[in-house]
Design a protein around this nucleic acid. Sequence first.
RNA 1: GCCCCCAUCGUCUAGAGGCCUAGGACGCCACCCUUUCAAGGUGGAGAUCAGGGGUUCGAAUCCCCUUGGGGGCACCA
Length: 489
Amino acid sequence: MRVRMAPSPTGPLHLGTARTSLYNFLTARHTGGTYVLRIEDTDAARSTVEFERDIIDNLHWLGISWDEGPQVAGGDDVGSHAPYRQSGRMDRYAEEAHRLLESGRAYRCWCTHEELEAVRREQEAAKEPPRYNRRCLNPTDAERVAFEADDRSPVIRFQVEAEKIRFDDVIRGEVEFDNALLGDFVIVRNDGVPLYHFVVVVDDEAMEITHVIRGEDHLSNTPKHIALIRALGYREPRFGHIPLILNADRSKMSKRKSQTAMTAYREEGYLPEAMVNFMAFLGWSPGTEEEIFTLAELTDRFEIEKVHKGGAVFDRDRLDHLNGVYLRAMTDEQLALRLRPWVPDAVRDDDLRHIVPIVKERLVRLADITGLAAFLWEPDAVVSSWYGPELLHPKKGGPAEARAALEGARGMLGELDDADFSAEVIEQRARAAAEAIGAKAGDFFSPIRVAVTGRTISPPLFDSLELLGRERSLARLEIALEKLGEVPA
RNA sequence: GCCCCCAUCGUCUAGAGGCCUAGGACGCCACCCUUUCAAGGUGGAGAUCAGGGGUUCGAAUCCCCUUGGGGGCACCA
């Protein structure tokens, strides 16, 4: 079995493309087949190496690898069926287009956009299906001479036969189309650039692809491909059309309505393992109630035949949950490593490792580390700018209670030396201090939390104090006290 | 408009004729734990399996129709 993924470097890696890649990858690995990556860069105007890099890098990031094709952006082709970039196969397309012309299955067309548009409008008015009227199918010699003299360069159209096309889709079963409804479509532009429906067929044959697994949006295009394959005398691969990933309104997932770029998820701190697990279940399930799967486990269990037919709505809440599951399953050391890019260099690895335990079960995405722990590395002035004096007031109380708590904390922490500055000791003393002034624990801790972390929501208070250290904790209490004084009590 | 595909809780799904008075997960709501927030635990609401006809002793599961949704009909991929 030889399967392929054929992204077009005209944009960053799309979630839908990523999932199709995943399904192809899983299919190849599960069956021991070969996975090919092909870059569809015929549209030179829109294709860039940057997008190629984004696609390849993010695919690698997910853990998806391929046996043939460029392994790095702009890199050399690897594999026995090179080239793997369409831009390197232009001669072949020209040859095949010529063959079609010679055999009479394709013809040149000189119609202008305006003429085409006029015909389409007429057809619409007459309630006929809009398709090419074959005006250029058999030009008279005089017409041909006139066209060529006119200096207009023609496109090449494929002559579609009026026949029923039926195929056995790997996941949908028997599907039948009537090609009589299709118009003769363009396979080569008038500037000589071959078009998608044509090159995809030529490439799949050249690369000996046996199973074309792609998005459902290509289902309706398949009869065109099969007609081309037959006209060219190629072997017909099996086709499998996987359901689309949907926006919340159930339309095809699009940039306008959803975040579609894989990079964006990566930058927010979603883990590749979570993305993979999540995407795998958008249209597939092992048939059991298990739902946490590593790439290796998916490779073991995934069967393309079990993929659903219906589209699946992208659900961010579910992704968040899965990401949290993977985050919490990591050891502190592993998590510290993953968190590294989101934490300033000034924070030493050793310190970071100490931070992990207090944020681990609170993180949804790696980027959340900032909101949770930035108070540890930001200067006192910055932290104090995060809150106003009212935030220091405990739920049940005002400035007086806040002041009492802050002063109590100052006195209590002041008595501790650095050696005693541990979460356990601090907690013990804090509870005693609260009791001493007759405050409820929560009301006593609240002002301290805001003073030290700058927020009402934070990691556990005593661990936070320990990590911040005696000096800085005391300094922040001092600042809070000053801030309290700014407003008359 | 034409063609094709699809249809189980809000969402992802289990279910391939009797095990289903439809199970799990996310989300939601309670309660427990608790210094905040999380995490965790317990419980709950939530789907007459889109609707209607068949087939069958028996249908979420098979067939047909309707409805709804989606995709495709480019000198984009």
